[in-house]
Design a protein around this nucleic acid. Structure first.
Length: 423
DNA sequence: TCTGGGGTCCTAGGACCC
DNA sequence: TCTGGGGTCCTAGGACCC
């Protein structure tokens, strides 16, 4: 029997999160910017209609912002992360199996509910999420994850048909697929779009009936799975317990160019401690650390990029240890007289932290003590907000830190910033 | 002035082994 | 002239996702 998947997708997630706590935005166009207030990464429907593309540099749409009185926000990941958690909690109550696919999307397996009216069931999910969080969602239902994605895309593009679209028993799926351009299919990016169009495949229906052999040859087994999924044959299982990450990256552009080693050391210490935190969160330890820095490639000035790989004597997730190696690394690749734009840390060769092979010549005498310290640090930061406790090497003034001049409050995670309702 | 950040999977080809 | 056959592991690069 065919499976049944639902894709629940929050509408304009970041923009909607801002709206949820600010009723005056209800009828005002909203955009949310990337780190450093660089690019537009979320747009309310009004802004989408103005044809502001995703990823547009902010400075290029300033005029439009002014003209249409668009509300602009720096990204507030603490808020979005917490709102996401709330949405997922509600969704988990509606299905036996759920895959949290991204911050604003989840797949539900609805096989067990096939005897119900799925459209009504989905509408009910939607009402609950809206009531519980203030966030609108769109739900697509299909017999494979790819078709569920297609259905949700269709619902978003054809608003008049509602925020729920069920493709499972659609009388003429092929006709519907004909109206879906290939680049709208999950798994078809820019390159494959160009390639397919060169070969006369322009919509989902044409891809659905492409030859298996040809697809596999040019789009690997990944592409072939997409094609089979379009045919309604489910090839992608629900992934309920995501594996720990195999690489952990923390990198950011600076609020202003860095021109001294001292500041660069601070920044890299901060990124290293953030990477260590992420590592501990998933109970991992890293065997290799890469440290990199770069100038601004958009500017016509001397360019420099470099990267150094450090093999750690013993796999570790210890902030103090990682910060020490990171600083040593950056000192080796730092060259004076450049304007640096960005730096970062990449941890790889990740292993389970409960299962670390200690080095016979382990030169870190405080390992056990330090682990206790890390636990306390993590607890404090989780309870009182991130960076309540941090390493001194990361500095205190941080004039290089990213700019978030238009950030909203952390309404749900910080008592001091909670929403106040006036009588 | 101003251009984000963090991941996954697959394949081809080279090194190396017996 | 002729120069095996079959593996595995690793890496770089290319595609994709949000």
């Amino acid at each position: 029997m065919n499976k049944i998947f639902a894709l629940v997708d929050c509408d304009n997630f970041y923009a909607s999160c801002e709206r949820a706590f600010n009723p005056s935005l209800a009828n005002r166009p909203v955009i949310v910017l990337s780190n450093n207030d660089g690019c537009v990464i979320a747009r309310s429907n009004e802004v989408k209609q103005m044809k502001v593309p995703l990823g547009e540099p902010y400075f290029k749409c300033r005029d439009l912002v002014e003209k249409h009185n668009i509300a602009v926000f720096s990204s507030n990941y603490e808020l979005y992360g917490d709102m996401s958690r709330r949405v997922m909690e509600i969704l988990a109550g509606f299905a036996l199996d759920i895959e949290i696919y991204s911050i604003d999307e989840a797949f539900l397996e609805l096989d067990g509910f096939r005897h119900q009216n799925l459209d009504e069931y989905a509408a009910e999910i939607r009402r609950y999420v809206l009531q519980g969080t203030g966030l609108p969602v769109t739900i697509g239902i299909g017999s494979s994850k790819t078709l569920a994605k297609v259905a949700s895309k269709y619902a978003k593009k054809n608003r008049q048909s509602g925020a729920v679209f069920n493709i499972v028993n659609h009388p003429d799926i092929d006709h519907l697929l004909e109206g879906i351009p290939v680049e709208d299919i999950w798994g078809v990016g820019r390159q494959y779009d160009k390639f397919l169009r060169r070969h006369g495949i322009e919509n989902a229906r044409q891809l659905k009936y492409a030859q298996d052999k040809w697809v596999k040859k040019h789009m690997t087994v990944v592409g072939l799975r997409t094609v089979w999924e379009l045919r309604g044959k489910s090839c992608l299982e629900l992934d309920q317990a995501p594996a720990p990450k195999k690489g952990i990256c923390t990198s950011r552009s600076f609020g202003r160019p860095i021109e001294t080693l001292a500041e660069m050391r601070e920044a890299i210490a901060e990124y290293a401690s953030r990477a260590a935190e992420k590592c501990r969160q998933q109970h991992s330890a890293a065997s290799i650390m890469q440290v990199f820095l770069t100038t601004n490639r958009f500017k016509e000035e001397p360019q420099y990029f470099n990267c150094i790989q450090i093999v750690l004597p013993t796999p570790t997730n210890d902030t103090l240890e990682l910060v020490r190696y990171a600083c040593r690394g950056i000192e080796k690749i730092y060259r004076p007289n450049y304007h640096y734009k960005k730096a970062g840390i990449f941890l790889t060769d990740i292993v389970d932290s409960d299962n670390i092979q200690l080095n016979l010549f382990d030169n870190y005498p405080y390992r056990e003590k330090s682990q206790k310290l890390m636990r306390v640090m993590d607890q404090l930061n989780s309870r009182y907000g991130s960076k309540t406790v941090q390493v001194a090497a990361a500095g205190t003034r941080k004039e290089w830190a990213m700019q978030r001049n238009m950030k909203s409050n952390n309404f749900t995670t910080n008592w001091n910033e909670i929403l106040i309702v006036k009588a």
